[in-house]
Each structure stands twice: as structure tokens, then as C-alpha cells.
Write a protein that binds this DNA or RNA. Structure first.
Lengths: 117, 117
DNA sequence: TTGACATATGCCGATACAGACATATATGGT
DNA sequence: ACCATATATGTCTGTATCGGCATATGTCAA
């Protein structure tokens, strides 16, 4: 088995920095493809391909407007990533450090007690 | 150019679901490799390889203890992901919706005004 | 030293990628 | 009908993957 497809989920889609750049631009408001091309300085086919990946995982939406196609951010698809990472927030946030130390001590005590049984 | 190496940054390392699973186990406390192998039900070489990737991007730390090697979570390396995703929080959080609609209207008005110049 | 245990590394096959480039499709204007 | 614009798709190349399996390395114990 090879690496999971980029279209598997938001985690894989967002691992590519250029796709993150696209999302950052779209966070400012919807844009047609050529706007993204100009702003990012990338070849148009490359941008279209990245947009396809983003669309397949639901991170963007498209709407036709004349000959343009307007892409819009679908931020909700980032929520799983947000939720997953947030569970680890305590491991680097200073304000949780002392609390976690206490919990760690308590857990070690419990383990010692169950060893004595 | 192919896809960026998994060891490029936390974004790429964490795109692999088994590596996320490893981090989730380690969030409960440090563990030797065989503990992870047992808990995840994966072949030991596979776990070792995933641990190597996680170590190269700083998501875990190792410490030798006899013939065991104890792995520990380094949550701080998740902070860049957290920070990046957090910037998009407003796009799916209900409590931001109305505020963003207003901002959008204001921006459109500005654009109309500058078109008249 | 021999052996058992714990972990890491090497090689293989299959797969999927990002980017370059050329070309197809779609829409609008004249 | 024709052309220009806007965007999407196809093909190719080089590369890096994940997982399987075999094997190497390191450490303890007798």
C-alpha cells in the first residue's frame, strides 16, 4: 500500500502547503481561479488541480459565473483537524502544565496501589 | 517533484492515521514500543517506522531504558497546526456567522465605491 | 558465550503523488 | 461561425511513500 490519497480527508489535503495557501486566500472571500493564479503566482493548471483536491474533500465549493468559476471556502471541513489537535492543546499550553503534573502523580500512585494487590 | 516527504513538517507527519493513533496513545503517557505494538495491533517494524517519522518532526521524544526505548509525546510540535486551523475557526463557528456577514456587506460596499472612482 | 528479548533497519512491490507541458472544454463577444 | 478568455484535464517524469518480510543491532541474563 502506498501513501493515502490526498483526497482521503482534510488531513491529507491540507498537508500540501500550496493548498493551504489557497485556503488562506479564500478565507478573505470567494475568488475566481485566475485571481488565485495571480495572487499565488502559480501555473493555472496547477491551481486547478489543487482546487480539485480541495473540492473533493469538501474544503471548497464552486459556483459558475459566466465563464468564471468562483471558489469559496468551506471552513467546516477543517473542524475535524481542529478538534483532533485541540485534544493535545494541554500538552503545550503553559496553563495546563501544573494540572497535568498533578494528574500524573495521582495516576502513578494508583498504579502503585494496584501493584500491591 | 513528488509529494513532500512525511518528515517535512507536522502537517505531513500527522496526515497518516496510524501516526495519529500513536500520538493518541502517547497522550496518556510515555510508552515503550511493544506497548504501542500491543495497543495498536500493528507489526512492530511498522510501528518503529512511524515512530521514526514522528521523531524526525519532533512530535515524539525517545529515551533508552534498558533494552526498551520509551517514547514520549512532544505536543508542542502540534502547535503550528493548531494555530493555522484556528484562523479558520470563525468560518464554521455559529457565533461568528452574523459578524462575518456584516463584514462581508461592508466590504462589498467599499468595493462598489472604489469602482466609481 | 550463548541465547532471549526489544527495537531498528533494509529491501521490495505497488501506488500515488506534484509539477511541467500540451490540449480539451466551456462560455461570451462580434 | 469565429476568436478570445477562463478553466479543466491528460500525459509524463521523478520521487516518496506504506506495508510485508527478513535481518541487523543492542541489551540483559545465565
Amino acid at each position: 500500500m502506498a501513501r493515502a490519497a490526498t483526497t482521503t480527508d482534510a488531513f491529507n489535503a491540507v498537508a500540501e502547503p500550496r493548498r493551504r495557501a489557497i485556503l488562506e486566500v479564500l478565507a478573505d472571500g470567494e475568488r475566481p481561479v485566475n485571481d488565485l493564479v495571480a495572487r499565488l503566482g502559480l501555473p493555472q493548471p496547477l491551481v486547478s488541480k489543487h482546487l480539485r483536491v480541495l473540492r473533493e474533500v469538501g474544503l471548497v465549493d464552486v459556483r459558475g459565473a459566466g465563464r468564471q468559476r468562483i471558489y469559496r471556502l468551506e471552513g467546516r471541513s477543517l473542524e475535524p483537524i481542529h478538534d483532533w489537535v485541540k485534544r493535545f492543546e494541554r500538552t503545550w499550553e503553559r496553563r495546563f502544565q501544573r494540572m497535568d503534573e498533578v494528574l500524573e502523580e495521582l495516576k502513578e500512585q494508583e498504579e502503585e496501589e494496584s501493584d500491591d494487590e
